[in-house]
Design a binder for these strands. Structure first.
Lengths: 193, 193
DNA sequence: GTCTATAGATCGATAGAC
DNA sequence: GTCTATCGATCTATAGAC
């Protein structure tokens, strides 16, 4: 017997919630808003999720887990630091394009996580930033990058890829590949001639 | 008779509101929260402001007006395009450091502006981006910048300075000047050796 | 101009019928 | 598992005493 392809209703709720949270913020989105987007009464959703906080947690940790596991893979690649940095920039641009709403929520609404989950999320983010920073540090030590303040470099890179969330639309006349290339060129080679 | 130095209570409300909106978002901040921060009952603040939306509008348009008027000045300077770009990056870093809470609100909570004000704000932002983009375009035409996608360059620059809002603390062991220099170097010359 | 009290709307979440 | 109905809390804003 073929396994039933389960269109998990919880998953639908999480996806619509990410879109609404991105558009109106976690606090600005009511369970009634979300219900009408999902096609359900607010009360009915509680058969699939346990609370509004539950939704936020699922979205945020799904994103942070994805980033961290991908970083671990990139760290192990037998390539130059320049290529590792390129791979990371590519990762950010692609996650932003493929799962932009969830990434946006993890970037902007994580602060509404309840106490212990907030702590967990901050630690996950710190771990990610630490791994990323080490990669930059090693790249400088290896002579592949200019000597510079590692924190400034790290956050400049992380921020430079974040605007994709606010700006990118499929019909904008630029493909994901072109976008990655342009951003990488600016970050690696600079704007000046 | 000396003119009374007016410690405008409205101004205090706006400043505390910017801090709270930055920390908890516009929707996540209640008038009671704000009142207790200001040292007043929520109801009493309505003698100084007309609504919660009024507060948000004042903050957002104060910021957008500042950016636009400064851009107009920089446009008129008799210097190279590289120096104009440097002046703009400096402007962003300094406004972020000096008035970070308000800038943060204008960056993140403008979407809660009510209909007509939202329209106005979007137009102001578009005007700013247009002026900034033209500066990049002219710099490319003058041979000072690498030929590249102007929109990508614009938003990479704008984003690269935004993280300062999330990261900068006076005691972080880096001055505003060092910060500006580091960011300018990365954006103009790139990370690669 | 600040307060207490509260109107009126809306919030997250639950109870219980079906 | 979805609905209607509603609880109790909290929201913005106003009324009116002082």
């Amino acid at each position: 017997m073929a396994k039933k392809v389960k269109t998990n209703k919880r998953q639908v709720i999480l996806e619509e919630a990410a879109k609404l949270f991105k558009a109106k913020g976690f606090s600005g989105t009511s369970m009634r808003d979300l219900g009408s987007q999902v096609g359900m009464e607010a009360a009915s959703m509680y058969n699939h999720i346990s609370s509004k906080d539950d939704i936020l947690e699922s979205i945020c940790f799904h994103v942070s887990n994805t980033y961290i596991s991908q970083l671990r893979e990139i760290e192990q690649l037998p390539v130059s630091y320049v290529d590792k940095l390129k791979a990371l920039i590519q990762l950010h641009v692609r996650l932003m394009i493929e799962d932009g709403a969830a990434v946006s929520v993890a970037n902007n609404d994580w602060k509404y996580l309840s106490d212990d989950k907030l702590q967990q999320f901050k630690e996950a983010r710190k771990a990610y930033e630490k791994g990323f920073a080490e990669l930059i540090e090693q790249g400088i030590a290896a002579g592949e990058f200019q000597p510079m303040n590692v924190s400034v470099a790290l956050f400049t890179i992380l921020s430079a890829v974040r605007w994709v969330e606010l700006w990118y639309r499929p019909g904008r006349g630029i493909s994901a590949e072109e976008l990655e290339e342009n951003i990488m060129t600016i970050l690696l080679n600079g704007l000046a001639k």
